[in-house]
Simulated assay, not measured.
Amino acid sequence: MKISFSKINNTNYPFKLNLENIIFEGNLAKINTKLVKISATMQGFVYRPCDSCGEELELSINENLELFASDGIFKDENNELSNTIEFFDGQIDLIEVAISELEAYLSDYFYCNHCKNKN
């Protein structure tokens, strides 16, 4: 789902994506001519192997997300790391954002109850 930067203004622009067992839902709001704030939640579940024994887990996901989309190169004026995704075609690809955030979440370690209790 791609949304043009030009369609977004200062009022909330709602969106909802259903990615199999994950719902990515929230609002877009323009901060300035080149920057859009994405406020969203990621809810649902995924199956993943335990990082210790390999047993399949059902991970429940309920994450609040606040990030930004930049129309072109983003220069952080405060020299701090920000959660800004750059797009270069004048559109925000919400599927790309959702998948990226899910992959970032899943990059952590997850253990089944048996392995958690062993430590």
Rank of each mutant, 00 (worst) to 15 (best):
M1A: 12
I3D: 07
S6R: 13
K7W: 02
I8T: 05
T11M: 07
N12V: 03
Y13T: 15
N18H: 10
L19G: 01
L19Q: 12
E20I: 11
E20F: 08
E20T: 13
F24W: 08
F24N: 09
F24Q: 08
E25I: 10
E25V: 10
N27R: 04
L28A: 11
A29Y: 11
K30Y: 00
L35P: 01
A40D: 06
T41H: 08
F45Q: 09
S52R: 10
E56P: 00
I61M: 10
E63V: 10
L67C: 13
L67G: 01
A69R: 04
A69E: 05
G72D: 12
G72I: 04
I73A: 15
F74T: 11
F74Q: 12
K75M: 13
K75A: 13
E77M: 11
S82G: 07
N83E: 15
F88K: 14
F88D: 13
Q91D: 15
E96V: 05
E96F: 14
E96R: 11
S100K: 13
S100Y: 06
L102E: 12
A104E: 12
S107Q: 11
D108Y: 07
Y109I: 09
F110M: 05
F110R: 04
C112L: 00
C112D: 00
N113C: 00
C115H: 06
